[in-house]
Amino acid sequence: MLLYILKRLLASVGTLLVVLAITFFLMNAVPGSPFITEKSTPEQIAAANAKYGLDKPLIVQFKNYLVSYCQGDLGVSLKMQEGTPVTDIMFHQGKFQLSIKLGLIALLVSVIIGIPLGCIAAYNRGSGLDGFLRVVTTVGVAIPGFVLATLLLVTFAVKLQWLPTISGSLDNVKAYIMPIISLSFYNTCYLAKLTRTSMLDAINQDYIRTARAKGVTTKSIVIKHALRNSLIPVITFLGPLIAGIITGSFVVESTFSIPGLGKYFVQSVLNRDYTVIMATTFVLSALVIFMNLVVDIAYKIVDPRITLSSRED
């Protein structure tokens, strides 16, 4: 297992390199400049390019990125908060932590509510309860996040005035509620549907019938036997979901005025803030790669029959 993890970590370096190369050359292929404004002159843009080394050949710029990344330097922002180190913006100003906090809570809510609901629906297949849950979850995966966020905002903040419209830096419990619901609703519903389907597959297996015949309790069958086997596809979904929840939180962060990383990432692309695009891509890619590794290890824990590498065959 340890060898496998080491191998995967080494491979991750190569993956990151490819991701960075693709991002770098793609972003430079798109027209625009971080220094263009309604009032900037070509001379000013040229001066700014020279200041930040953007006048050098692309391959040299890319090499400079890699060298500075190896030294732990993600560069300085070229547009918003110009000249401020990207690491300061992402970490010291708390953008990364805010998005991670929001994303993880939303993920937790999705798992805690979605998986049990899927189990309940599967175990009550064909009942009124199952029908109700199927309708709710289908609606849930069909509603776009921004519609739900706006709906919540108007209902609970504007009309009822129970919750604040500005969640800001999530300083109090109330500030979390609407962003978390907006972020987790789709995933909760999707997880419930996924769990239900996997669960139905599992409870129709011979070993479940055998267990039933042996007089094992329903609770024990669901938790010890069916659920464990039905979790494989759910785990597969959860890995990329974490990174997705962070990068995909742009709409939620914007709607609830949360100064997080998702919003910053999207703005950096629109602003052509090259160093920020590269840095956020780097951090988020690393996160996705790491989560994929965690998922693979989780497979092994959930189902020991799964092999992680050819050596284990």
Binding site: A157, L160, W162, L163, P164, S169, D171
Partner: peptide, 11 residues
């Protein structure tokens, strides 16, 4: 819980 949540938080 109702109350002054609309003006809650830092804002």
């Amino acid at each position: 819980n109702s109350g002054n949540g609309g003006n809650g938080g830092s804002s």
